[in-house]
Design a binder for these strands. Structure first.
Lengths: 367, 367
DNA sequence: CTGTTAGCGCTTTCAT
DNA sequence: ATGAAAGCGCTAACAG
């Protein structure tokens, strides 16, 4: 007992702090309180509570049960701020996605959360609103919490983001895209190839004069990739290449954008027979606009989307689209994360990995 | 210098830990490093970095600038785990919503985040999947991080949740509902009253045989409230009261549920002239099903939803719905949070508040 | 398997 | 305005 000015109270009785203590304690029950009650050291309590199936060291099972039940009785809640501080393991994974309001990303978060469920890792979550400076700001704030891994969406980041991540020396996963020059790990698929494949299948069905609609490329790298896939495919197939409509400026591209785009397309290129949209949302908007104007889908114009959002199967006619295993991206990211974090905790480093997530074209009544 | 086994290195040069140190330092640049470089105490650095417009005490402006630039140069990133631990201020707000995949809640999160933007508070975010035990589990995990406030959705919680919150002695906000017996603060509106008002307006338009469709009440308290509002209104208006269809069992109620429900309704009560849905998603599904079957909307059947989701204005005909200021709920919650947390930090406690958020009925072509 | 000791990086408290 | 000392609640490291 070397604490100066000790109030003299045993650690068990939480007397109000003496008049001369340097620092005000929380007031909450601490590990030391639980230990004192049981007449053991707090280290033993710590071991009992921290014990994982993986960690062999811990208290004996009988004692462990007593510790657990006493903790419960006393209303003890471990202070992870303190434990993170002491162990240098925050237990956080930082996750940045472009938008909350997008069920594709929501499904990815879902899959990731499930994969991390039994690990004690918590997700520190942020959304960038498709804005690079916002991403940078959020990441900067998150890094003050010392996350054990960082997950980003896509490969488009400010230079300072790469710099910060390098300095933080933490495992990084970029998801949802296949990247030329990933920071470290990647989990995703080629948005360009998926769109190209969609175009090829529409071509096989007989469509020859296709148009593409999407948002401004700078703010939506995934959309830009899809557009490139479209352009490559129509070129390869010898189809007209100039039928591109850009809406914006703000992502996400909305249903209303789709309605507006389909009108533009039909005005500029009246013989267009298929419209490929950057996502299901504008595709749906386009479909509804066609119904308003009495343009038969798919007879007058075929429409295709991307992402297989709920609306794409609920609408009438149902939308042809690219089906992505969004939850699978999250799950794969989670599994990768576990291995990467375990490696770091053991003083190693997981070799950079690239995980390909398959996609599928769903041909439905809109084409 | 009372540290035993000190390696002898000054704090400036980050030599690898000596062979006999008890604890491995992080390796990252610390406040002490920055201070040493400037020849000042780390306390001064701390003050310079923590200085808020609110806090008057801090370093002189000139020194502060030097500290800031040196920090940047050295790549110093403050360790909020340590500062939270030391100050007993986690800087976290715990937020629990039922679902990520719901733009209403997404908008609320957005509003909340914006309101908290300049406070240094970070959101610790979890979604319950409309499941009370999941909510309890998530909250338990979050409380280990000592959040300075907790935000829940709705008023339906396990008893243990109320107990944990009471023990944590932290400000609590329940949002999205008006509650009989709130835990503490409330921000929301009456789902029952909003639905009742919708029914009254449909009645005024001439609809007389209305049906309601929703999910199982146990898993969706907000849906249950809406149903109660429907029942109260049709009773008050002397309309048939038994036309209730329950789909499920799993919330959220989907577009497909709506398609299925509208068929059931028209089979059981063929003279139904209006269908009120628990949210826009099933309302949209019902609308599409009507189109598939050639039932004219609103001539044969009027359809109304709830929530003013994007699809409700994009579809054709557009859906009559209840417009909620979702972001406003988030914003109001954020403002309340700021005051509540400030109070606690000053050793006070904010009196329990109830903030009413107005709603609006949008009559559109589907009715 | 259990205990002892030291200390993580910051902020509080008190002194100057 | 600045500094020195102490300590927040936990876990690493070592000893037994």
């Amino acid at each position: 007992m070397s604490r100066k000015f000790d109030s003299g109270a045993s650690t068990e009785a939480k007397a109000p702090a003496g008049p001369r203590t340097k620092k005000q304690p929380t007031g909450a029950v601490t590990m030391a309180d639980v230990a004192a009650r049981l007449g053991i050291s707090k280290m033993t309590v710590s071991r009992a509570l921290t014990r994982t199936s993986a960690r062999s060291r811990g208290a004996s099972e009988e004692l462990r049960q007593r510790i657990l039940s006493t903790s419960r009785e006393m209303g003890y809640v471990i202070d992870r701020t303190a434990s993170a501080f002491s162990s240098k393991r925050s237990g956080f994974v930082a996750l940045l996605i472009p938008s909350l309001n997008n069920s594709n990303f929501a499904d990815t978060v879902h899959g990731l959360t499930l994969a991390l469920e039994d690990t004690g890792l918590q997700v520190l979550f942020g959304y960038t609103d498709y804005d690079l400076p916002t991403e940078e700001r959020l990441l900067r704030a998150m890094l003050t919490r010392r996350p054990e891994a960082v997950v980003l969406t896509g490969g488009s980041h400010l230079p300072s983001v790469r710099k910060m991540l390098k300095a933080a020396a933490v495992p990084v996963v970029e998801m949802w895209d296949m990247l030329q020059d990933p920071i470290e790990h990647t989990v995703g698929f080629s948005n360009a190839e998926a769109t190209a494949e969609l175009v090829r299948q529409l071509h096989a069905k007989g469509y020859r004069r296709m148009a593409f609609m999407g948002g401004t490329p700078e703010r939506d790298p995934r959309g830009a990739e899809r557009r490139q896939g479209f352009e490559a495919a129509v070129k390869e197939l010898g189809l007209p290449q100039d039928r591109i409509v850009v809406v914006g400026p703000t992502p996400p591209v909305s249903m209303a954008h789709g309605a507006q785009a389909v009108v533009q397309v039909m005005q500029r290129w009246p013989d267009t027979d298929a419209l490929v949209c950057v996502s299901d949302h504008p595709a749906f908007g386009a479909l509804m606009e066609c119904q308003r104007r009495g343009w038969a889908v798919p007879q007058r114009l075929a429409i295709a989307g991307f992402g297989s959002f709920e609306v794409s199967t609920a609408c009438h006619p149902r939308l042809t689209t690219v089906v992505i295993d969004c939850a699978g991206i999250g799950r794969a990211t989670g599994e990768l994360l576990k291995r990467a974090i375990t490696a770091v905790r053991n003083g190693k480093r997981l070799e950079a990995e690239t995980v390909m997530i398959p996609f599928e074209i769903a041909q439905r009544e809109s084409s």
